[in-house]
């Protein structure tokens, strides 16, 4: 089947197998490997991307379901003026160690701030419940999101 999916503002039209998962469409078909595959069972959140602005786990969505939609991946966040506030927050507050969970964390945090520009610490922890980090213990991730909230938010 043919799908037309806009990724980071760029339209892509591809012939795919219906069983192709969105995460494989991004990584294998489009070579956008910033989106990671962690658990592959919709638990860890490493594959989080925005589908029409909404955070989803791309290992549990078919590319066919994203036909005609707009996807934003980690590669699409930075603009000409540099990193997005959430990306910069992770940099400023050391919100990562190995970095494997980071693309998913950043996308989930971006969706969270789009909805709640000024979240409490508990709201940040709830919002990132679907993203696992095995390095940091989360504290510095929460601080990174707080930094982003105070410095431009979801942009």
């Amino acid at each position: 089947m043919r799908v037309e999916i806009t990724v980071n503002g760029q339209p892509h039209s591809r012939e795919i197998e219906p069983r192709l998962l969105l995460v494989h469409f991004l990584r294998d078909t489009l070579s956008l490997t910033g989106t990671h595959i962690g658990c592959d069972t919709s638990s860890c959140g490493a594959c989080t991307v925005l589908l029409d602005g909404v955070a989803i786990k791309s290992c549990t969505v078919l590319a066919a379901q994203a036909d005609g939609c707009a996807v934003t991946t980690i590669e699409g966040l930075a603009g000409e003026d540099g990193l997005s506030p959430v990306q910069e927050g992770f940099r400023q507050c050391h919100g990562l160690q190995c970095g494997f969970c980071t693309p998913g964390m950043v996308m989930a945090a971006t969706a969270l701030l789009a909805e709640r520009p000024d979240p409490t610490e508990q709201e940040i922890r709830n919002g990132l419940k679907g993203n696992m980090c095995r390095c940091t213990g989360y504290q510095m991730i929460v601080e990174s999101v707080q930094w982003a909230a105070a410095n431009g938010g979801a942009r």
């Binding site: 919709s42 959140g45 909404v54 955070a55 989803i56 786990k57 989930a108 709830n126 679907g130």
Partner: peptide, 9 residues
Amino acid sequence: IGDQQVRNR
């Protein structure tokens, strides 16, 4: 239920 990503879908 689950987390924000799961509840969105």
